[in-house]
Nucleic acid binder design. Structure first.
Length: 261
DNA sequence: AAGGACTTCAACCGCGAGCTC
DNA sequence: TGAGCTCGCGGTTGAAGTCCT
């Protein structure tokens, strides 16, 4: 029944890693690859627990890590993703190649929080900082609380998927588990009638009908753009075949093929 | 130069999900 | 079926470095 403990805590080192320990870990992983963290320390000749080895490798020793300061673009992307996802550091890190969740979490706490506060923005809600009754009067809806909507993120899957697929994955979970009857079609449009004829039935003036001509509609607006995501990287929005004034979020299938979600 | 205050970030801790036996 | 284990996550800590007086 069960298994033996992952390590003998009494015989493991703790605290800062030495160069020798780093070298042992690097050489072992180079030779054998990442694998069973439980058996790695003994196999590599390290007096550390597997958890500590994993952390050291992931956060510090991995060769694909990007060292150095965060760029302005990375800053802004972190802020936007945090607004969408909340403290899902691993998911956010998945969108920033070469950065770790620990690094982003530290950077958020030491730099970005302060930056947002200096802009007059509450770092938790991403809203203008307010005090007292003004803050209390704000509505608290699901749409104003993205952290809630993403609370059931399958992090394992999300970390490996591009952002649009991750959103799709969460929508599936929310549909199935939370609100099976809820229509979560991720399409949006401005609040104008779906056709001139329908408008004609509700209004008898020719001026209104003329004003509703499709040619006079404004360009459709994309939610991804509104969120500030770089279109080339994440956005696959297309106009709906049913209504050219509605932008739907499309999941990429193969080169040039998309499916509306 | 000294030492106290503040900042940074690597590492630890505890927990939950999922897996194994 | 359920106890126990592994893995990975987010929150927290504390040593080391930097700034300020």
């Amino acid at each position: 029944m069960g298994r033996s403990p992952c390590c003998e805590k009494a015989h493991t080192n703790k605290g800062a890693w030495t160069k020798e320990e780093d070298q042992l870990l690097i050489s072992y992983i180079k030779a054998h690859g990442e694998g069973c963290w439980r058996s790695l320390p003994r196999a590599a000749g390290l007096l550390r627990c597997g958890k500590s080895c994993r952390l050291r490798w992931i956060n510090y020793l991995r060769p694909d890590l990007k060292r150095g300061n965060f760029t302005e673009e990375e800053d802004e992307l972190i802020i936007k993703l945090h607004g969408l996802l909340g403290n899902k550091w691993s998911v956010i890190a998945g969108q920033l190649p070469g950065r770790t969740d620990n690094e982003i979490k530290n950077y958020w706490n030491t730099h970005i929080k302060r930056k947002l506060i200096s802009r007059g923005i509450d770092p938790q809600t991403h809203r203008p900082a307010m005090h007292g009754s003004a803050a209390a009067q704000l509505p608290t809806t699901i749409t104003s609380s993205p952290q809630l909507a993403f609370s059931t993120v399958d992090v394992q899957v999300a970390k490996q998927l591009p952002l649009p697929q991750m959103i799709r994955s969460n929508i599936d979970v929310i549909k199935k588990e939370m609100c099976p009857d809820l229509n979560l079609d991720l399409s949006m449009s401005l609040s104008f009638p779906s056709s001139a004829s329908s408008l004609a039935s509700s209004s008898s003036t020719s001026e209104n009908i003329a004003a509703a001509e499709p040619a006079s509609y404004p360009q459709p607006i994309c939610l991804c753009y509104h969120l500030g995501l770089p279109s080339s990287e994440f956005c696959n929005c297309r106009a709906s075949p049913k209504n050219q004034h509605v932008l739907g979020f499309y999941r990429p299938l193969e080169e040039g093929q998309y499916t509306l979600i």
